[in-house]
């Protein structure tokens, strides 16, 4: 166990990344090209950090408030952004990240600017992070099975078909934004309570790309997609320690290769393959039975 204990911070990071990846997963599943998760995470992280350090609010209450704040921010962002599509939506949500980032940098009275907020109590450890992942994962799994998940799937695949079956695209996209905001709010707050300090730059372009890569690499239909994506992209830098300066190059190349050869992501591709194999075997069994009977 002692050898594993050294990796505890890494496991904790992976779990917290999973929560943030869930926030990126929901809009992609619903066919929303939102890159706003980093902005929502910043809102949650700053809300929690400010309440905890300035007003001494207990961490649990801070986290709940961060979830609500993230959700509300997501809903507000959805009003102008949900009607956009594709590249335009990606750019507009990226602009939202930029707005939140510069607010965090320049509203020094509230956020202490580039210095960030320090001496946040350490309230999130491996256990709390694991509970959050299981909780969010379960909620998303249930939603995925429900009528809302069906709506997400058909809207993502073909909006024209969705409206001709009576689905409200606007309603489903709004739900996706609110969920994305609330989950990112949770992830941001937990990140703040795990890392003692937060600075604006953590919620910038690097996080946007990382979260997007996790979901694209893992898969955007199954709930396990973002989980696997977060494990790979959190663990990879550790495995590539020996490469030192070339680490980003290797990581980027692996990402390009996996997107080229597994466009549906590791989990969805594997699941599809397993399902086909099971069906083919069942079919072969049935055919054999027919021949012998």
């Amino acid at each position: 166990m002692s050898s594993l204990a050294g990796y505890e911070p890494l496991f904790e990071l992976a779990l917290l990344n999973m929560v943030l990846a869930f926030s990126q997963y929901i809009p992609l599943r619903a066919g929303v090209f939102s890159l706003g998760s980093a902005a929502f995470a910043a809102v949650g992280a700053y809300a929690a950090a400010i309440l905890a350090t300035r007003y001494g609010v207990p961490p649990v209450v801070c986290v709940v408030i961060a979830v609500v704040a993230g959700g509300i921010f997501g809903a507000l962002a959805a009003v102008p952004l949900a009607r956009l599509r594709g590249v335009f939506q990606a750019l507009a949500t990226l602009a939202l990240v930029q707005i939140v980032l510069s607010t965090a940098l320049n509203w020094t009275a509230l956020t202490d600017g580039a210095l960030g907020i320090n001496s946040i109590p350490k309230a999130v450890h491996l256990t709390e992070a694991a509970i959050a992942v299981v909780f969010v994962g379960y909620v998303l799994h249930v939603i995925g099975l429900s009528a809302i998940g069906r709506g997400f799937d058909i809207i993502r695949e073909d909006e024209t078909v969705a409206v001709s079956l009576g689905y409200s695209v606007r309603k489903h996209h709004m739900i996706a934004f609110v969920l994305s905001g609330a989950i990112a709010g949770l992830g941001g707050a937990m990140h703040a309570f795990s890392s003692y300090s937060i600075t604006p730059n953590e919620f910038g372009f690097h996080m946007v790309v990382m979260l997007l890569a996790m979901v694209v690499l893992g898969g955007r239909v199954s709930v396990f997609g973002p989980v696997v994506g977060a494990i790979i992209l959190t663990g990879l830098p550790e495995l590539l320690r020996g490469f030192q300066d070339y680490r980003s190059v290797v990581q980027g190349a692996l990402l390009m290769a996996s997107i080229t050869f597994l466009p549906s992501g590791v989990v969805d591709t594997t699941r599809g393959w397993l399902r086909r194999r099971a069906l083919t075997r069942g079919q072969a069994g049935a055919d054999a039975a027919e021949v012998t009977s």
């Binding site: 099975l145 009528a147 809302i148 058909i154 079956l165 009576g166």
Partner: peptide
């Protein structure tokens, strides 16, 4: 199953909460 959307009666909240 996706075609039955118009006959779904349960609320969005019930679906979100499972």
């Amino acid at each position: 199953l996706a075609g039955f959307h118009l006959h779904e009666k349960t609320s969005t909240l019930a679906n979100l909460l499972g």
